[in-house]
Each structure stands twice: as C-alpha cells, then as structure tokens.
C-alpha cells in the first residue's frame, strides 16, 4: 500500500471552501437583516451579477462557492492522481467532474 499524500490538499480545499462560503452567507444574512429585506427571490446563476438585492447576491455567491467546493476537491484529486501516474483514478475523477459540468450547463438551458 502506498500512503496517499493528496489528502492534505483535498482537506485544505474543502475546509477553505466551507470557510469562505460560510463567511459570504453570514455577511449576506446580516446585511439582509440590517436592511429589513425579508422578501427573497429565487435566484439563478446568471443573477449573481445582476439580479436581486446585494444581500441576496452575496448569499447566492456563498451558495455557489459551497456548491463548487466538492468539485474543487475532486479536481485536487485529479491533480494528485496525475502526479502519481494513477491514470485510471484520474480518468474516473475527470468523468465525475465532466458530469457535474454537463449538469450545470444543461440545468441552465
């Protein structure tokens, strides 16, 4: 068995994503409470830069960041597997990421 050193990197990506995403969610929530904005629209990815109030868009950014984090973890794994010349595992991870990207694209069509 070979010790897998990619764990540290993947763990860092996951923890970083949750910290940043959580911070954006918290800021958006506090801003929403401060402005008394209790009405919340359903937002889509395209509304990030032009749709809804600033607090809603900050919350959306937090949601998007959290949603992107598992995919980023898989990307980190691809890098680690490629470095370790584990082509099979890298290809499997690449297919998983492709499925996520295709889902994101189709979901917006």
């Amino acid at each position: 068995m070979k010790r897998d050193t990619s764990y540290t990197l993947v763990a860092a990506v996951l923890r970083g994503g949750v910290a940043l995403g959580g911070a954006l969610l918290a800021i958006g929530l506090v801003m929403g409470i401060a402005t008394g904005d209790v009405s919340t629209p359903a937002l889509r990815l395209t509304d990030l830069f032009a749709g809804g109030s600033l607090d809603s868009r900050l919350e959306l950014a937090g949601i998007l960041l959290c949603s992107a984090t598992p995919g980023a973890g898989v990307l980190a794994l691809i890098g680690a597997r490629l470095r370790g010349r584990d082509w099979g595992a890298a290809a499997t991870a690449a297919v998983v990421v492709t499925i996520l990207v295709v889902g994101m694209i189709i979901g917006h069509v």
Binding site: L29, S67, G107
Partner: peptide, 18 residues
Amino acid sequence: SVYLGRGFVHPGVAAPLA
C-alpha cells in the same frame, strides 16, 4: 445545479439554513 438553473433556490431560505 439543476435546481439552481431552473430558479428554485431562494438564498434567503437556504442561507440561514446552511
């Protein structure tokens, strides 16, 4: 990603929950 694309995500509901 599908729910987000179809406009079902309400950040005002999801954010406090998350």
